[in-house]
């Protein structure tokens, strides 16, 4: 069932990334290491710079200062196509201007690997079929993407990213629009693939379940990073998110799970 087979995972390093737009610092010197083959989560409140960090990696944004390194090589120095052969992204863009078929969209994952109008090879076609099967969209293959629901489309775009055969996979809130089953399936797929994964997640419980390490962002800086059980504490959640939570270990896996109470004054022993 493993999807990526061609490329060895790469180590990703964000090195003192700083992004300023119109005098606002969206990232204020962010450094983060993602070891080869690991799944690392980025969490943080709105506007903390999670998406901005990913955008620097998939080259939608050039950092004002700082570098993104892939196995120690400066990713920004590579030609765009070369970079896209190594780094794939599932962005927050969930739409399409034109009503391509699902199969056509998934095949576009091969774009950085192909010249001009070069057709897909047999291996590449099979790669597309396998990615569609992994994301449970094979039955939609001939449907137009504009006729799909948001969640179905999200899975199609994830299949497209896998088809890119990246060494590093970036996902910006991949569970958006997905129903519960497909959220769990997508995240367990991330666990299974040998690819290095950097994923932005809002749901801290899902992040705790899927990530080897979690980086917490606030104000464009890394607050802390480490294994979920060390990072996701009631104290941190209060400091960074301004929310009171009770942390309990998952009865089966032992991963930290956060329980929230809606009223801010309810939890006993409130700090």
């Amino acid at each position: 069932m493993s999807t990526s087979n061609a490329k060895a995972p790469a180590a990703l390093r964000l090195d003192r990334l700083r992004v300023e737009i119109d005098g606002h610092a969206l990232l204020a010197g962010l450094s983060l290491d993602v070891a080869a083959g690991q799944v690392v989560g980025l969490v943080g409140p709105n506007g903390s710079g999670k998406s901005t960090a990913l955008r620097c990696v998939y080259r939608a944004l050039r950092p004002t200062t700082g570098t993104v390194r892939l196995d120690e090589r400066d990713l920004g120095a590579l030609p765009r196509r070369d970079a896209a052969r190594r780094v794939a992204a599932l962005t927050q863009e969930n739409g399409s201007e034109l009503d391509f078929t699902v199969r056509e969209v998934v095949a576009l994952g091969r774009a950085p690997h192909l010249r001009g109008n070069q057709a897909l090879s047999r291996r590449e076609r099979e790669l597309c079929e396998r990615a569609m099967a992994d994301l449970d969209v094979t039955h939609l293959a001939d449907r137009g993407v504009l006729t799909l629901s948001g969640g179905e489309r999200q899975r199609v775009l994830a299949a497209r990213a896998l088809t890119q055969e990246p060494a590093v996979l970036l996902l910006d809130e991949p569970t958006n629009h997905l129903d519960l089953r497909h959220q769990i399936e997508l995240l367990s797929l991330l666990r299974r693939t040998p690819t290095t994964v950097l994923v932005v997640l809002h749901d801290l419980n899902l992040a705790a379940a899927v990530c080897d390490r979690i980086g917490v962002l606030a104000g464009g800086r890394l607050v802390t990073a480490g294994p979920p059980e060390r990072v996701l504490t009631a104290e941190l959640v209060r400091d960074v998110f301004g929310v009171t939570a009770t942390v309990v270990p998952h009865p089966l896996t032992g991963a930290p799970q956060l329980l929230y109470a809606l009223s801010p004054s309810t939890p006993p022993g409130d700090a």
């Binding site: 939608a60 765009r80 196509r81 201007e97 990213a161």
Partner: peptide, 12 residues
């Protein structure tokens, strides 16, 4: 047609 962000991630 997939959007500028996605296009950037595909090396365009």
């Amino acid at each position: 047609a997939l959007g500028d962000e996605t296009a950037a991630s595909l090396g365009v």
